[in-house]
Simulated assay, not measured.
Amino acid sequence: MEDLSNLSLGRLICYPDAAVDELERRIGELRSLDVSGIILGGRSLVDGLPILGKGCTSTVVKAVAHGRFYALKARRTDSNRASMDSEAQLQVTANSISVGARLIGHTRNFILMELLEGWFVSEWLRGNPPMGELKAVLTRILYDCFKMDSAGLDHGELTDASKHIIIIREVVSEGGAAFKPVIIDFESASLKRRSRNVTSICQFLFLSDGGVKAPSIGGVNRERLVEALKAYKARPSRETFNSILYSTGLMVGQ
């Protein structure tokens, strides 16, 4: 942790303005989370140093806490948000319905959570996964969105979910593995507005130019899907949700 007092490394968790007093406060917050170190690595760069991610309101680094690796999300010093409290509470709500990366702890400026190592959904789809894996992942994504709708939790950014869903590989049995989608980034989520997760993700996956093309999974009836989405929007229920699954070819029998 002492290395973070060095301004070049401190900017990883106190970006972009690593003023000494602010950096010291943040190091104190990390100690309260039992964070013992930061691991360099990832696709984004801060001052030439690789980190997991960098956005308009936060940076994400790989951290060590309790002897394990986690993802640490740090509020940018120029963020328009006063703290990470709201996002953390919304992530707790998502976790309560088994959605999202598991939250470990948070402070005013940090969220410590489960580390997810995998592919953004857009990357994974471009890899042309086998039909069985593709359908299983898409079905899981839609079910998670339905659970959020049922809980009144609107993610807010799923019309372009390319970097808001990570596909991880998890061991399901000895010698076996499966792909699991995890919805991330709840900073724009809300419990106050109407929840539109299912309609948003279907727009991204099946109806937009950048989404999954109908021939990729077969059986997608665009006209029927549009009608099913209208019915779901008017009356969200398991029945209208199942109609969406049928119209996408992810469920058979109707």
Rank of each mutant, 00 (worst) to 15 (best):
E2K: 14
S8M: 11
L12N: 01
P16S: 08
A19F: 15
A19H: 13
V20A: 15
D21T: 15
I27K: 14
R31V: 12
R31W: 02
G37A: 09
I38A: 05
I39G: 01
G41N: 08
R43E: 07
S44R: 13
P50V: 15
G55R: 02
T57L: 09
S58A: 15
T59L: 07
H66M: 15
Y70L: 13
A71L: 03
R81W: 08
M84K: 04
E87Q: 13
V92M: 13
G100S: 05
A101P: 06
I104F: 04
I104Q: 08
G105L: 11
G105E: 01
R108P: 02
N109E: 14
N109W: 00
F110A: 04
F110G: 02
I111C: 03
L112W: 00
L115F: 08
L116V: 10
L116F: 02
F120N: 09
W124S: 04
L125G: 01
R126Y: 12
M131V: 06
G132F: 10
E133W: 03
L134W: 06
L134V: 07
L134K: 15
A136G: 03
L138F: 00
L138M: 10
T139Q: 05
Y143D: 10
F146M: 07
F146Y: 12
M148R: 04
D149S: 08
A151K: 10
L153H: 05
G156V: 06
A161E: 04
K163D: 06
R169Q: 13
E170D: 12
E170M: 13
E170W: 01
V171C: 08
V172A: 08
G175T: 12
A189Y: 00
A189N: 09
S190L: 07
K192T: 11
V198P: 01
T199P: 03
S200F: 02
S200R: 06
Q203K: 11
F204G: 01
F204W: 12
F206P: 00
G211N: 06
K213S: 15
I217G: 07
I217T: 15
G218M: 09
G218S: 05
A228Q: 02
L229H: 00
K233A: 13
S237L: 10
T248G: 01
Q254V: 10
